[in-house]
Simulated scan of single mutants.
Amino acid sequence: MNSIYLDHAASTPIHPDVAQVMMNMMTEHYGNASSVHLFGRDAKRTLNGARDQASRLLGCYPDELIFTSGGTESDNLALFGASSLVSHKGRHIITSSIEHHAILHSCTELERQGFKITYLPVDSTGRIQIQDVVEAITDETILISIMYGNNEVGTIQPIEEIGLLAQSRGILFHVDAVQALGVLPISCADLPVDLMSFSAHKINGPQGVGALYIRRSIQLNAQLHGGLQEKKRRAGTENIAGIVGFTKAIELVSDRCEERKDYYLLLRSTLLLALERVIGSDSFIVNGHPTEFLPHILNISFPELDSETLLMGMDMGGIAVASGSACTSGSLELSHVLGAMKLSESIMRSAIRFSFGLGNTTEEMEQTAQMIGTILHRVRNRT
């Protein structure tokens, strides 16, 4: 039985070219970049070269990019580092009700520390309204943190409008761009953003490495202590093999961003058309924004089924999908994203996320629709 992987929003298979540069690094260059001898200097040159290349591709200066262990650490560093930096100006932070748990749980801890958090609502498509941002801002607001594109339903937020509003009020603006990198063109210098988080394993890079863009004018307070790495902003020996692999992955997705986007849209439309043909358009509902969405994420509810039945049936058939974000897919609690969108319980309890990536084909979309049709047929015959 051939397996079909449709959970690329959780993690992606490593690209062969990425694996190759990482293997070369791990077997031929093993020095510590903080060492002053020949091996350390060689590692330092490699690290600096990777940072130069990654920053060029992301549209920022090399000293504005620090490498982390992934999107979660980048989000944490942005929120805790920025809030402690400017807490003397105020203790109010604005975020949204549909953020990744790396943001939401960080905000919970910041609340425990005495910060006030405003969680913006979203409409039924998962989008923030600018007026809500305007009304949430107070004289105490120091930071706004909004994700670029949602990891469960794919809805893209009006980042430029929010960023310009934040700039006009002297408020720091952080964007979680973990899902957006590789499918949306990103130039940090051209966006009104002060901090932006990235992760390697979402773009066919290695797990355990990410990056945080920090605009030059910001001196972020470090949250890890013990060394002077990353210009004193993130202590710890750099994961050079991972960083080199991450940089190669950024290079690969940057070279083919539009091509990837078009192909994911083709996969999306193929799956939707196949579902219409196999089970009928009345048997499923697409969740998210109709036009402002990440091309590789498609969230669909099947009201006649529940997510657990569909997940188990598809897994037994060799198809990997998800019911929510990767961090919560081990449990089948209702999605906080769909709940914030105020969708009906039947829609929330039957939602499945399909996410496309390297290796997926239109034939797999047809097979996926057929499998859903088979599962639905079984359930209908039982009732």
Rank of each mutant, 00 (worst) to 15 (best):
L38C: 15
I186V: 03
I375E: 07
A136E: 04
T368H: 10
S325I: 09
G126W: 00
D123Y: 03
S106M: 14
F284H: 06
G313Q: 03
E161Q: 00
Y263M: 12
G49Y: 15
K89E: 11
H100Q: 05
L212R: 14
D139A: 12
E364T: 08
A102M: 09
E259W: 01
G205S: 12
Q167P: 04
Q157K: 02
L267T: 11
Y264N: 11
L38E: 15
M316Q: 15
A369F: 10
S84D: 12
G330D: 01
M365D: 11
V244W: 09
G324A: 15
Q207A: 15
G81T: 11
I159H: 03
T270M: 08
A211L: 14
N299C: 11
R382W: 00
S55Q: 14
G126M: 06
H105T: 13
L311N: 00
F198G: 02
I103A: 14
G70N: 01
N287V: 03
R260V: 04
A136L: 05
L120V: 01
G210W: 05
S69D: 00
S217P: 02
V337Q: 00
S3E: 09
L164P: 01
G114E: 10
T95I: 03
V175P: 08
E304M: 10
F293G: 02
S301E: 02
I171L: 14
S281F: 12
E363G: 13
D176E: 11
C327V: 13
L224I: 09
V379L: 06
L57T: 11
D132M: 10
K44W: 07
I352F: 05
S199I: 11
R216N: 03
A19L: 13
L338D: 05
L275A: 12
S3R: 14
I250P: 01
K231W: 03
R112F: 01
A326M: 06
E251N: 09
D63W: 15
E28D: 06
R169L: 06
L38I: 15
D139Q: 03
C327L: 10
S335W: 04
G357S: 03
P121S: 10
D132K: 13
G126K: 04
Y263P: 06
G149N: 04
R349A: 14
G242F: 07
F293E: 00
A340S: 03
I162H: 00
G71I: 01
V379E: 05
A200T: 12
F39D: 15
R260Y: 09
G31M: 13
I14D: 11
S325Q: 04
V134C: 04
E364D: 04
A102D: 12
L338Q: 01
P290R: 08
E111Q: 09
G205V: 09
M314Q: 08
G313M: 07
S124N: 02
V133P: 02
S11P: 11
I250A: 07
S307Y: 00
T95S: 01
R349T: 04
R234M: 09
M26Q: 10
N150R: 04
A166Y: 09
F302S: 13
S55V: 12
P158H: 02
